[in-house]
Computed example of a mutant assay.
Amino acid sequence: MSVRQEMPGRLLRLLALLQSRREWPGRELAERVGVTTRTLRRDIDRLRALDYPVESTGGTGGGYRLGRGGRLPPLVLDDDEAVAAGVALAAAASVNPGLGESATRALAKLGQVLPARLRPRLAAAGSVVVAPARGVPADDLPGEPDQSGGPGGDIGGGLPAVDPDRLALLAAACRDAEVVSLRYVSRGRDTDRRVEPQRLVVAEGRWYLSAHDLGRDAARIFRLDRMRDVTATGRRFVPRPQSEDPVAQLRESFAAATYRHTAHVTIELPEPEVRRWVPALPGGLSADGPDRCRARVSADSAELVVQYVALLAALAAARGAGVTVEAGPEVTGPLRSLGTTLAATP
């Protein structure tokens, strides 16, 4: 292949490198592209002639960076970046009405130029459902199913990363109705599962799979970062009836789950009034007559349970209503301390 024939590909590689870092030393950039520093300078001039704002920087040997131009230059993405962009655009189209039309147009453009090998992964991304933020601290979100079938919690710093290949495999399995085998880590237990994937749901930055667990013959919610050895079996299944609202299904699973710390609160107020003031309760709220309701507050964090029970108690006190709390000492102890402190405050 002649130098002239390989030049367009070389310029694209150069452009991709310039987009990947804020600044490149000239010699290192030339080595990455596979050319001499003299050829690199010529290629930089060619990019500038194409209206790419490549700036020269000082320092030993000099360097280059991509500046801000008057118009948006084409982006050069690798495979994972292209699929990630597609998933993000599909999510934006489904959760944000203001961005929906623009995100859909951008997704269509991406699909037109995507290589054939990546199109199934992008098409599968259309099955992803994004749950609007519910305003509950992230520590309350579930980590893995407990023995009752609901998702259990797992307190940790930051949100876990999800393997893009695993995400693509599960999205394709949801689309194609294909059984998946996996190992699942559940509060220290490692179990083998065979599941019929139904939907992928994103909630508060975490990925979940709604599926039918064949071994337990029951619906389950799985967190993707808890999965290991995820494999498509090639066995197809007839999709089972499922909830029309996967976000509501996930929320119900959150509310029904039993976590490490649980408090039961009886409030002498109508359920609609309490729900109006505390709409995002980590647990459940149900009426116990026309003027009374019961709240179940459950989380892996005792501090989080204390916060919400205190909020319910403050709501009742502000309206002169009675409140009764049933919980373990890890919750009632801090509540008594808080009450004593407030009582002593002038």
Results as ranks from 00 to 15, higher is better:
Ser2Val: 07
Ser2His: 08
Met7Asp: 09
Met7Lys: 15
Arg10Met: 11
Leu15Thr: 14
Leu17Gln: 09
Gln19Leu: 08
Ser20Arg: 12
Pro25Arg: 13
Pro25Met: 08
Gly26Asn: 05
Glu28Cys: 06
Thr36Trp: 11
Thr36Asn: 06
Arg38Ser: 06
Arg41His: 14
Asp43Phe: 06
Arg46Tyr: 12
Arg48Pro: 05
Arg48Lys: 11
Ala49His: 08
Leu50Pro: 01
Pro53Cys: 10
Glu55Trp: 07
Thr60Val: 14
Gly62Gln: 01
Arg68Thr: 15
Arg71Asn: 04
Arg71Tyr: 12
Pro73Val: 11
Pro74Tyr: 10
Leu75Gln: 13
Leu77Ala: 05
Leu77Arg: 07
Val83Asn: 03
Ala84Arg: 14
Ala85Cys: 13
Ala88Val: 03
Leu89Lys: 02
Ala90His: 05
Ala93Lys: 01
Ser94Lys: 09
Asn96Thr: 13
Gly98Gln: 08
Gly98Val: 09
Gly100Ile: 01
Glu101Ser: 12
Ala108Asn: 09
Gly111Ala: 03
Gly111Leu: 05
Leu114Gln: 02
Ala116Trp: 10
Arg119Leu: 15
Ala123Cys: 05
Ala125Ile: 04
Val129Asp: 05
Pro132Trp: 04
Pro132Gln: 04
Pro132Leu: 06
Pro137Thr: 00
Pro137Asp: 03
Leu141Ile: 12
Glu144Pro: 09
Glu144Asp: 13
Asp146Glu: 15
Gly149Glu: 04
Gly156Asp: 00
Gly158Arg: 02
Ala161Trp: 13
Val162Gln: 06
Asp163Asn: 15
Pro164Arg: 01
Arg166Pro: 02
Leu167Arg: 15
Leu169Ile: 09
Ala173Cys: 05
Ala173Tyr: 01
Asp176Tyr: 05
Val180Asp: 01
Leu182Tyr: 08
Arg183Ala: 15
Arg187Met: 13
Asp190Ala: 10
Pro197Phe: 12
Arg199Cys: 00
Arg206Cys: 04
Arg206Phe: 06
Trp207Asn: 07
Leu209Tyr: 02
Ser210Asp: 13
Ala211Gly: 11
His212Glu: 08
Ala218His: 11
Ala219Trp: 13
Arg223Glu: 09
Leu224Asp: 06
Arg226Asp: 13
Arg228Gly: 03
Asp229Pro: 09
Asp229Gly: 10
Thr231Arg: 14
Thr233Leu: 04
Pro239Ala: 08
Arg240Glu: 14
Pro241Asp: 13
Pro246His: 07
Val247Lys: 02
Ala248Gln: 13
Gln249Trp: 12
Glu252Gly: 13
Glu252Trp: 11
Ser253Lys: 04
Thr258His: 07
Thr258Ser: 10
Arg260Ser: 02
Ile267Thr: 04
Val274Tyr: 05
Gly284His: 09
Leu285Val: 02
Leu285His: 01
Ala287Gln: 04
Arg294Asn: 07
Arg294Asp: 04
Ala295Met: 01
Ser298Ile: 03
Ser301Leu: 08
Ala302Pro: 14
Val305Ile: 03
Val306Ser: 10
Gln307Pro: 01
Val309Phe: 01
Leu311Trp: 02
Leu312Gln: 00
Ala313Cys: 05
Ala316Lys: 07
Ala318Tyr: 01
Arg319Cys: 00
Ala327Pro: 04
Pro329Glu: 14
Gly333Arg: 03
Leu335Asp: 09
Leu335Trp: 08
Arg336Gln: 14
Arg336Val: 15
Gly339Leu: 14
Leu342Trp: 06
Ala344Tyr: 09
